[in-house]
Nucleic acid binder design. Structure first.
Length: 771
DNA sequence: GGAGGCCTCGGAAGG
DNA sequence: CGAGGCCTCC
């Protein structure tokens, strides 16, 4: 390992050797960033730094894992002691350790965004708010941005500006929703992803001794993809590094494509101001791409106003010019790509894995997929629904969660009636109401249902009681046996296994297989733990759940990695490289996205996205657009993207004339063209919806659900006879013309004045007897 | 209580 | 067009 410095160019070498003090490395695309990071850590250890004193933060598990593997290769098992992981996983670990200080149990649940959404949906509904205005996605991203900017509920309520924003977006209840959401999460012993950062901030700012402990421990801190950090992450890093200031951040402002989810590009642009005696090293030599690609990419990114100055260059061949293709339709475009891949494979003897097709939106994958399938070219689509987000997997995990954290309300709601066990919405609403009245958790009511006054009928009480006993049984063994034994037991006893096994549809079979796969994963986990020395070993279910809470699809390792063409969104392609890259759908309103057109800031992010796309290519890049494409079932006309015009012509190989349709000289957009006076996209969508009549008038709809008395009245058994005049909520007035069956199955036929004859079940037809 | 039809709405995505 | 939440109807 001693000659590792010889593998580096002068700037890379400086970045590795400059170990003391704040350092920012601006790493251009393809400039050997990962190499620098790994060698830097190796160098620290080589110099005698204790591996326990190093903290290395990344954004994805994949990046963390890869780096760990590479470092292990260089320095051996010593690498295992380094704290290396994503922001979320590292701070979740610390939070579990210090949980009691902020009032959380150490086995707190981590709510994923589906859990958060379900909770928010319920809160909005309970408050009887207009769901067209209080859209879950908007509310969620708003709360997320509060948290990522350390705006607690209290801070929100003291912040006139934010409140005004929400008021003018017709969402004056935002603060109340936020407050309820936070309270519910806390009651459930749950943190969402943003909490992992927010609570870490709370922890280190409220408890100086805790901060000092970790400051002293992490003498050397490295942060990868610094341009993607949000404010919350920025503050944590700053606090932890403030004792030793041996902080090395690596990033590329030109590749910042996550501002939309809160990343703050200012963190990288302001590094110099934040750390007085900081050094900045630029890695400008690109080892990946041809000259044409590098220069074309530079010519695009130069259109952005705000960036750190750097000159990315390459010593590689000039290479082919960038091809621009035009197609009549999305399918034509896909066929062109398909046949082009076929030709290239034949001519250059390229493998499938040398090709990537990149697009702006996932919906574009379908036509590409068809074109490849037609030619029998193996492909793999990346992205889509992650394994852990699949319904059947989440159902199983919900059982496991209930077994370890009984307060977890989202988990309870998910499984209380799945598989079907006859506990319906009415019962659940009554349990909810009782829990509210008694200030208990749902589980406390469920677990003791026989002694709770809920108004639930005896039959349902028995069913709920059975459910409670079932879960108690799971809880009892959760700490006694290892995760795999517990999970297998739960899969059988809960009825989940039976439920999925009985479904013989293709989807059902695949669900069953997914459940099996989950169990296999748990088995692997247990086996891995068993290989560890006894004092480090932890095969418990709760430890398993902590382990996977922060995993995502890409983290499930190497599923059949045959030779295939890769299809993915540009966002997913970040950090990857391919000899041949096709960037498709270069059309106005698609790329740049329609939603990014109204502000310069958004448009610049789209442009950086294009920069990322182009710089994935090593040998050849091909751009294409279609003149028409199906979007949501409609055929629409398309115009070529302004981004094509923005590339310096000398690097382009345009296969037809007249691509410029924007009225002459393509590069002459003025700033005012991009910028209209739309204050924010929140306001925008609210204004659009203003005409919608406000639903709040119909409050009773929701009240009824929560008020057992009202509900009971409707269900009261009534005696009907033929000839009676009755009124139905929806069908209006009618005369009973026939009665059939007895008790619960009694059916009533009614001849309604307005809608004619209907047959209804007596117990559900909410009839009022008129005469 | 629950199966199935209706309606709505749609960005990119890490943890 | 397609997925998923919601509502209806038995």
């Amino acid at each position: 390992m001693s000659d590792y410095l010889a593998h580096l160019n002068p700037s890379q070498r400086k970045a590795v050797e400059q170990t003391e003090g704040p350092l920012m490395v601006i790493a251009g695309a393809g400039s050997g960033k990962t190499r620098v990071l790994t060698y830097r850590i190796a160098h620290l250890l080589n110099k005698g730094v204790d591996s326990f004193n190093i903290l290395s933060l990344t954004f994805t598990n994949k990046a963390a894992r890869e780096m760990k593997e590479r470092i292990e290769k260089i320095i051996g098992p010593e690498a295992k002691n380094i704290w290396m992981g994503t922001f979320h996983s590292v701070f979740a670990k610390i939070l579990r350790f210090e949980a009691d200080k902020i009032g959380y149990p150490s086995n707190f649940t981590i709510y994923d965004s589906d859990d958060s959404k379900a909770l928010l949906r319920r809160i909005i509904k309970e408050m009887s708010l207009d769901t067209d205005i209080y859209k879950v996605n908007i509310v969620q991203s708003r709360i997320s941005s509060f948290k990522n900017n350390l705006i607690t509920v209290k801070a929100y309520n003291n912040n006139a500006e934010l409140k005004t924003q929400d008021d003018s977006a017709h969402r004056p209840q935002m603060g109340v929703i936020y407050e309820k959401y936070v309270t519910e999460c806390f009651k459930s012993g749950a943190m969402d992803f943003d909490d992992l950062l927010l609570k870490t901030n709370e922890l280190i700012f409220r408890f100086p001794d805790v901060l000092l402990k970790y400051q002293s421990r992490f003498k050397y801190i490295l942060v990868d993809e610094y341009q993607d950090t949000n404010h919350s992450q920025y503050l944590i890093v700053k606090a932890l590094a403030s004792k030793f200031e041996n902080l090395c951040v690596v990033g590329d402002d030109a590749q910042s494509i996550y501002a939309f989810r809160g990343a703050n590009i200012r963190n990288i642009l302001n590094f110099k101001k934040d750390y007085n005696d900081s050094k900045i090293i630029k890695l400008e030599q690109n080892y990946r791409s041809t000259q044409n690609i590098v220069k074309a990419a530079n010519s695009i990114i130069s259109k952005n106003t705000e960036q750190l100055e750097k000159k990315v260059w390459t010593a590689n061949d000039v290479g082919d010019k960038i091809k621009v293709n035009r197609a009549m339709s999305d399918n034509d475009e896909a066929n062109e790509v398909g046949s082009n891949i076929q030709e290239t494979k034949n001519r250059d003897q390229a493998l499938n894995e040398h090709f990537a097709i990149l697009y702006r939106t996932n919906a574009q994958s379908r036509s590409m997929e068809e074109a490849l399938r037609k030619r029998s070219i193996p492909y793999r689509i990346y992205g889509g629904l992650s394994f852990y987000q699949r319904r059947e997997v989440k159902d199983m995990l919900a059982y496991l969660r209930m077994a370890t954290n009984e307060k977890d309300e989202e988990a309870l709601r998910r499984i209380i009636n799945y598989p079907k066990r006859g506990i319906g919405n009415t019962s659940i609403d009554r349990i909810t109401l009782r829990a509210k009245e008694q200030n208990k958790t749902l589980w406390q009511v469920v677990a003791n249902i026989a002694n709770e006054t809920t108004g639930i009928n005896a039959g349902s009480v028995t069913k709920i009681d059975h459910f409670g006993v079932l879960i108690k049984g799971f809880q009892a063994i959760a700490n006694e046996q290892d995760a795999f034994e517990v999970a297998t037991y739960i899969a059988k006893q809960s009825g989940l296994f039976r439920e999925l096994q009985s479904d013989k549809t293709p989807e059902g079979i695949s669900k069953y297989e997914n459940l099996q796969e989950l169990l296999n994963g748990i088995k692997d986990f247990v086996e891995q733990e068993n290989q560890k020395p006894e004092e480090e070993r932890n095969t418990s279910l709760s430890f398993y759940l902590e382990d996977i809470a922060l995993l995502t699809d890409n983290d499930k390792q190497d599923e059949d990695d045959g030779d295939h063409v890769s299809l993915m969104t540009i966002h997913q392609s970040k950090g990857l490289e391919y000899p041949y890259v096709y960037i498709v759908g270069l059309e106005e309103n698609l790329f740049p996205s329609q939603m990014a057109m109204s502000s310069r800031v958004d448009l610049e992010e789209e442009r950086r996205l294009f920069y990322v796309a182009l710089t994935r290519a090593e040998k050849r890049a091909t751009l294409s657009y279609a003149l028409s494409r199906y979007r949501w079932g409609n055929l629409i006309d398309c115009e070529p993207s302004r981004f094509i015009d923005e590339i310096d012509e000398q690097y382009l190989d345009v296969n037809f004339l007249n691509i410029k349709t924007n009225g002459g000289s393509g590069t002459s957009f003025s700033k005012s063209n991009y910028k209209t006076n739309v204050p924010s996209r929140f306001n925008q969508s609210a204004q659009k919806k203003e005409k919608t009549p406000i639903k709040q008038v119909f409050i009773p709809k929701n009240l009824k659900k929560l008020n057992p008395n009202l509900q009971a009245r409707n269900y009261k058994e009534q005696t009907y006879s033929t000839g009676m005049k009755v009124e139905h909520e929806r069908f209006g007035i009618g005369i009973i013309c026939n009665l059939e069956g007895v008790g619960a199955n009694k059916k009533i036929s009614i001849n309604f004045t307005e809608v004619g004859e209907k047959t209804l079940l007596a117990k559900f037809a909410k009839l009022t007897i008129l005469s």
